[in-house]
């Protein structure tokens, strides 16, 4: 009986090691928190621009007015668009930094087989979604850009979860859900962005840090 239980444990151990070894597990929870903070800061700045254009009353109307532009070039040159780009770049840089530091600490190359595969699997839905949303902008469907970003980002995360910490899948589901709800609340994209890219990232990052990194730190 005892030997049989031993065999069962051995098989479970084998399964776990097979799974973990084919995933990029250095992804840091702090990356999620940092990206979330950047997103909230970005949303705060964007909100400032919107308020300067008309104040908090009739929020939706102001957004619609702000986004009333003649051409795509106008939109690209728009303050809100620029804030979005800066936010994305800052979030990406900080997210990369913390994961880089963690993999450095664990002595695992950031650019290894597992991280490469993770990046490819994140990129496919993101790039496809990006191109699609770019076309939407060209047709002037600005209202569906924010929900679109959340949906495609969520799908990218669900896809990526097979190649990194499995919990990423739940973050992905939440982003997709938020994006879909946002489709029926066009004009409130900024709030949904703040919730999805900001709050959800911070919650996810905190949980991951607490689960995987906190103990290691106290041992070291």
């Amino acid at each position: 009986m005892n030997e049989q239980q031993q065999s069962l444990h051995d098989l479970q151990h084998i399964k776990q090691m097979m799974e973990r070894s084919s995933r990029f597990i250095s992804l840091s929870g702090l990356s999620g928190i940092a990206a979330g903070v950047c997103a909230l800061a970005g949303a705060w700045f964007a909100n400032g621009v919107i308020e300067a254009n008309g104040g908090p009353s009739g929020y939706r109307a102001v957004v619609v007015k702000t986004l009333e532009v003649d051409s795509l070039q106008d939109f690209m040159g728009h303050r809100l668009f620029q804030i979005a780009i800066y936010t994305f770049v800052a979030a990406f840089v900080f997210a990369f930094l913390f994961t880089y530091l963690r993999s450095k600490k664990n002595n695992v190359p950031v650019w290894g087989y597992t991280s490469r595969r993770l990046l490819i699997n994140v990129s496919v839905p993101m790039v496809a979604g990006g191109i699609y949303l770019f076309r939407q902008m060209q047709f002037g469907n600005y209202g569906l850009i924010a929900p679109g970003c959340l949906i495609f980002y969520g799908l990218a995360l669900v896809n990526a979860s097979k190649y990194t910490l499995g919990e990423v899948r739940y973050l992905g589901y939440c982003q997709v859900l938020l994006g879909i709800i946002n489709c029926w609340f066009v004009g409130y994209g900024l709030y949904f962005w703040a919730a999805g890219f900001g709050l959800l990232h911070i919650i996810y990052g905190s949980v991951m840090w607490y689960k995987y990194e906190r103990n290691k730190k106290s041992e070291a």
Partner: peptide, 13 residues
């Protein structure tokens, strides 16, 4: 287990 599912794995991994 790790080596069966990966072509190669380095020491630190």
């Amino acid at each position: 287990s790790a080596l069966v599912v990966n072509k190669e794995v380095n020491f630190n991994e």
